[in-house]
Simulated scan of single mutants.
Amino acid sequence: MAKEFLLVDGYNIIHAWDELKELCELSLESARQRLIEILSNYQGFKKITVIVVFDGYLVKGNIGTVYEYNNINVVFTKEAETADHYIERVVNTLPRHYTVRVATSDGLEQLIILGSGATRVSARELYNEVKGIENTIRERYINKRPPKNNLLTDNVDEETRQWIEMMRRQK
């Protein structure tokens, strides 16, 4: 069975999605955390490997950080390494039979990853995909939540409902 990977250029997505861009103006950390939460929900629905990569290349002495958060991998690159370089390296090390998608709107990065055998996903396409999944999750929740009164007859088949009604009327 082929594995599926989604690599996300974190800051590129933050600056491309209006909700996250506005949040970033208040707090970059909050915008990062919100993106990670969104991708965590996405991963839970899609059951794929998600890796979100943030640039750490301008931070002096940065050795890089990798950690797992709610089943997604979060990467802060080391000093002098961009998210693009990290993503390219990962794409080139994954077996060719894996499905690999890279979410970025960086035109040059898209060309490079296409040449490496990955599929590109623009920030807008990922946004639409995420919103579609959020709507599906919401609809499933609404359809599966128990009725307000939570009556026994709301949770049984028609034959059982008729039998209960017959028993009730016989006293």
Rank of each mutant, 00 (worst) to 15 (best):
H15E: 01
Y67S: 12
D154L: 11
N135P: 04
D154N: 14
G56K: 00
D157I: 15
M167G: 09
T77W: 12
R169S: 08
G115H: 14
I133Q: 09
T160R: 10
E88R: 02
I137H: 00
P146Y: 13
V59I: 13
E139N: 14
E139M: 12
N71Q: 12
T93W: 02
F54R: 05
V53K: 08
E81W: 02
V50K: 01
E88I: 09
P95Q: 10
Q43N: 06
D84P: 09
V156C: 07
D55G: 06
C24V: 06
K60L: 07
G61M: 08
E158D: 05
L108A: 12
Q43P: 06
E134R: 00
G132F: 10
A31D: 04
L58D: 00
A83R: 01
S116C: 12
E37Q: 08
H97A: 04
D18C: 01
W163Y: 13
I164N: 14
A80D: 01
S40T: 08
G107T: 14
R89I: 04
G10W: 07
I142C: 02
I63W: 02
R138L: 06
Q33T: 13
Y57K: 03
I87R: 03
N62C: 05
Q170R: 13
N70T: 14
S105P: 04
I13S: 06
Y67K: 05
S116N: 05
R32H: 07
I87F: 12
Q33C: 10
S122E: 12
K131V: 11
N155D: 10
N73R: 11
L20W: 05
G107A: 14
P147C: 14
H85W: 00
W163R: 15
L114R: 14
I13N: 04
V59K: 14
I113R: 06
Y57D: 01
A31S: 15
S27C: 01
S30G: 13
F76Q: 00
P147G: 15
A123D: 10
L151P: 03
D154A: 02
L35P: 00
S30E: 13
L111S: 09
C24R: 12
L126R: 03
Q162C: 13
R34T: 14
Y57W: 13
R34I: 11
A103V: 08
I63T: 08
T160F: 13
N70D: 12
R169K: 10
R32L: 08
A83N: 07
L108V: 08
K46W: 00
Y141Q: 00
P147I: 11
F45D: 01
N143G: 10
E159R: 07
I112N: 11
N71A: 10
I63S: 14
I14S: 11
W17M: 03
R168V: 14
Y11C: 09
K171G: 10
D55Q: 10
R138A: 15
V91E: 01
D154R: 07
V130Y: 05
E81M: 09
